[in-house]
Design a protein around this nucleic acid. Structure first.
Lengths: 219, 219
DNA sequence: TTGTAAAGTGACCGCTTAGTCATATATTTG
DNA sequence: CAAATATATGACTAAGCGGTCACTTTACAA
């Protein structure tokens, strides 16, 4: 998606540019994120951006893809088969999420803002696509548990998958709501979202698990 | 909040103007909703809007207030004490929500888009305020149930309240995700969000209740 | 009918945006 | 060195926005 010109760039410069745009898109919805502002910060010409990318959407999709790739490396290292119980697996996902966050704060911030970002009318189509992908992943998790006889059978996979996905989102929003995390502030300090908040975060995860287990588990 | 001039307007005109803005804010985030576009639709001068309201935010808050008021009349007519079980009460809230929707489609659409609307940076402060208000209402519901010995005591009120609030939002999003409702389409036809979808909507509510009851209820 | 107050107007201001393109500079190749 | 290619530039376009204000029209009371 980026043009060859961008890929030919010296890595340092490429990273400087990527990071600056991550910062911008991490704090503004797509339609309000300004290329003009970022190029001024970077001290490069606006024309350059259009040498690197086809346009704003192309640039944005590149950022999504990059961040997803990085995060996926962390999530994929957690295997359901290493855990007896679904919820310890679920918890482990958050622990590796924390790892991802502390090692890639910028990418983490960007992904944190992604949902709000995608609300912009110009990219509503992207939103549906990505939501579907995410929900499907959770449906797969649920399907497996049902097949193993661990999750209830009397609720449709679709509903359970969706609700589990939403529960995950909910946890983030709860941490935000209660002020445990403060992305707006963290990003200014270039600090990870969860810096120094691992225990508090996991406590919330544990409470959510305690709440949701009887909803999903058989019996 | 609106100026006296607006309140002095003949009711028909006042309604025409209010409705046009409801339509605009029902399909766009705050920062992208355009006063210029609406006045062209209405065939009035832009200056008039500024005779009626202090500015865009003032206008927006008026819309929020109006719609909330109308919806509140429906919700307030449901009393917890008329129901033995919390979840039948919860279900009744959706039935009256359906009523509100079919009798006030425009207001319903506006409120449906409110969450996305509030994502705009210019009114982030309003968002926090309204979220807090909504969550507090749900916390109150939970508190009552806990006191009655009907909800579990081992999860904090805050967590349960927040999750219950989120579950409510989730139901709307699920209906959207599965394509049962299609606000974008309904609003063009001036049709209620849930037109002809009452049964499907209540089915989803019922399934959610079935899923969540063991999470919240004691034992 | 005249005078006053309320309501309505739209050109205009200052600002911002994504995107373009002719030109200039660097870098690589022959 | 020279020619060719790749990269960088920033003034410019066309469009959008919220908001203002000097002005006109309407409504009504004296």
């Amino acid at each position: 998606m980026p043009k060859q010109t961008f890929l030919n760039l010296e890595e340092g410069k490429r990273k400087r540019i990527t990071d600056a745009f991550l910062r911008e898109f991490a704090i503004k919805p797509f339609d309000e994120a300004s290329i003009t502002v970022v190029v001024k910060q970077l001290g490069i010409a606006k024309g350059s951006v259009y040498q690197y990318f086809e346009g704003k959407q192309d640039l944005f999709m590149y950022l999504v893809q990059q961040c997803s790739m990085v995060k996926h490396r962390y999530v994929a290292s957690v295997n359901r088969s290493d855990y007896e119980d679904f919820w310890t697996y679920f918890r482990a996902l958050y622990e590796y999420g924390f790892q991802f966050d502390s090692e890639n704060p910028l990418e983490s911030h960007f992904l944190h803002n992604l949902a709000e970002n995608l609300d912009s009318p110009s990219i509503k189509h992207l939103y549906k696509e990505m939501l579907q992908q995410a929900v499907r992943a959770f449906e797969d998790l649920v399907t497996y548990e049902v097949e193993q006889g661990l999750f209830r059978k009397d609720i449709s996979i679709k509903t359970m998958g969706f609700q589990l996905y939403k529960a995950g989102v909910s946890i983030q929003e709860y941490l935000l709501f209660t002020g445990v995390i403060n992305p707006q502030q963290s990003i200014q300090k270039e600090a990870p979202v969860f810096q120094g908040k691992k225990q508090e975060m996991l406590q919330v995860v544990d409470e959510y698990i305690q709440l949701l287990r009887p909803a999903f588990n058989k019996l």
